[in-house]
Measured scan of single mutants.
Amino acid sequence: GSVVKEKKEKALIEVRPYVEYYNELKALVSKISSSVNDLEEAIVVLREEEKKASEPFKTDIRILLDFLES
């Protein structure tokens, strides 16, 4: 629970300088966080969101995924 939350919060802070739609990304992460149990599940849902998103938000999600998977 809290470790996953920390990882996601740290990821958002780390990617902030590189993303165009930070507030939207943060809102998406919050929405996903409330419906998943762990980081792996969150990553799966983020990948689905990435497929549906259009640029440049798609790239923002990709940047976040790269950080979460590192």
Results as ranks from 00 to 15, higher is better:
G1K: 07
G1W: 00
G1V: 11
G1P: 11
G1Q: 12
G1T: 11
S2K: 06
S2C: 14
V3S: 13
V3A: 11
V3E: 11
V3L: 11
V3M: 09
V3W: 03
V4G: 09
V4E: 11
V4R: 04
V4S: 09
V4K: 04
V4A: 10
K5H: 13
K5A: 12
K5R: 11
K5W: 13
K5T: 11
E6C: 15
E6I: 11
E6M: 03
E6G: 11
K7C: 15
K7P: 07
K7V: 15
K7L: 15
K7G: 06
K8Y: 15
K8L: 15
K8S: 15
K8A: 15
K8D: 06
K8T: 15
K8R: 10
E9C: 15
E9D: 10
E9K: 05
E9F: 14
E9Q: 06
K10D: 06
K10S: 07
K10Q: 13
K10R: 11
K10C: 14
K10A: 12
A11C: 14
A11F: 06
A11Q: 03
L12I: 03
L12Q: 01
L12W: 03
L12N: 01
L12M: 04
I13D: 13
I13M: 12
I13T: 08
I13E: 14
I13C: 13
I13H: 08
E14D: 06
E14I: 09
E14G: 06
E14P: 02
E14M: 12
V15S: 03
V15L: 09
V15P: 01
R16N: 05
R16M: 13
P17T: 03
P17Y: 04
P17K: 09
Y18Q: 13
Y18E: 09
Y18I: 13
Y18K: 13
Y18W: 05
Y18C: 13
V19W: 05
V19Y: 04
V19F: 04
V19Q: 02
V19L: 04
V19P: 07
V19I: 11
E20P: 01
E20I: 15
E20C: 15
E20K: 15
E20G: 06
Y21Q: 09
Y21L: 12
Y21S: 07
Y21F: 11
Y21I: 02
Y21A: 08
Y21E: 04
Y22S: 04
Y22V: 02
Y22H: 02
Y22C: 04
N23H: 10
N23I: 13
N23P: 03
N23Y: 13
E24V: 08
E24C: 08
E24S: 05
E24Y: 06
E24L: 14
L25R: 01
L25E: 00
L25A: 01
L25I: 03
L25W: 03
L25V: 02
K26M: 13
K26H: 07
K26N: 06
K26L: 13
K26S: 11
K26V: 15
K26G: 02
K26C: 05
A27W: 09
A27M: 08
A27P: 00
A27S: 07
A27K: 05
A27I: 08
L28Q: 01
L28S: 00
L28W: 05
L28K: 01
L28C: 01
L28H: 00
L28D: 00
L28V: 02
V29N: 01
V29H: 02
V29K: 01
V29F: 15
S30M: 15
K31R: 13
K31M: 07
K31I: 07
K31D: 07
I32G: 03
I32S: 03
I32L: 04
I32A: 03
S33Y: 15
S33F: 15
S33D: 08
S33E: 09
S33L: 14
S33I: 11
S33T: 12
S34N: 10
S35C: 05
S35A: 11
S35P: 03
S35T: 10
S35R: 12
V36C: 04
V36Q: 04
V36R: 03
V36W: 07
D38K: 08
D38Y: 07
D38N: 11
D38W: 14
D38R: 08
D38S: 12
L39W: 13
L39I: 09
L39D: 12
E40Y: 10
E40K: 08
E40C: 06
E40H: 07
E40S: 09
E40V: 07
E41F: 05
E41L: 05
E41I: 04
A42Y: 12
A42H: 04
A42W: 13
A42C: 14
A42P: 01
I43N: 02
I43R: 03
I43E: 02
I43K: 05
V44M: 13
V44R: 10
V44S: 11
V44F: 14
V44Q: 10
V44K: 09
V44H: 10
V45Q: 12
V45K: 12
V45E: 11
V45G: 08
L46D: 00
L46C: 02
L46Q: 00
R47C: 06
R47Y: 10
R47V: 05
R47A: 06
R47G: 06
R47Q: 07
R47M: 07
R47P: 00
E48N: 12
E48T: 11
E49L: 03
E49Q: 05
E49S: 04
E49N: 05
E50S: 10
E50T: 05
E50W: 15
E50R: 12
E50V: 08
K51S: 10
K51G: 10
K51W: 11
K51V: 08
K52I: 07
K52C: 07
K52Q: 09
A53W: 06
A53N: 06
A53R: 05
A53F: 06
A53E: 07
A53L: 03
S54F: 11
S54Y: 08
S54M: 09
S54V: 09
S54E: 06
S54N: 06
E55D: 07
E55F: 13
E55H: 08
E55I: 12
P56W: 09
P56H: 03
P56Q: 04
P56R: 06
P56T: 05
P56S: 04
P56M: 04
P56L: 04
F57Y: 06
F57S: 01
F57T: 01
F57I: 01
F57K: 01
K58N: 03
K58M: 03
K58C: 03
K58E: 00
T59Q: 11
T59M: 12
T59V: 04
D60I: 14
D60P: 04
D60M: 15
D60K: 03
D60E: 02
D60Y: 15
D60A: 12
D60C: 14
D60F: 15
I61R: 00
I61H: 00
I61F: 02
I61T: 00
I61S: 00
I61G: 00
R62L: 05
R62G: 09
R62M: 06
R62W: 07
I63P: 00
I63T: 08
I63E: 01
L64Q: 00
L64V: 03
L64H: 00
L65H: 01
L65Q: 00
L65S: 04
L65P: 00
D66V: 13
D66M: 15
D66Q: 13
D66Y: 15
D66P: 01
D66R: 15
F67G: 01
F67W: 09
F67E: 04
F67A: 12
L68A: 02
L68Q: 00
L68H: 01
L68V: 04
E69D: 10
E69G: 12
E69A: 11
E69M: 10
S70A: 10
S70I: 09
S70V: 10
S70C: 10
S70E: 10
S70L: 10
S70T: 10
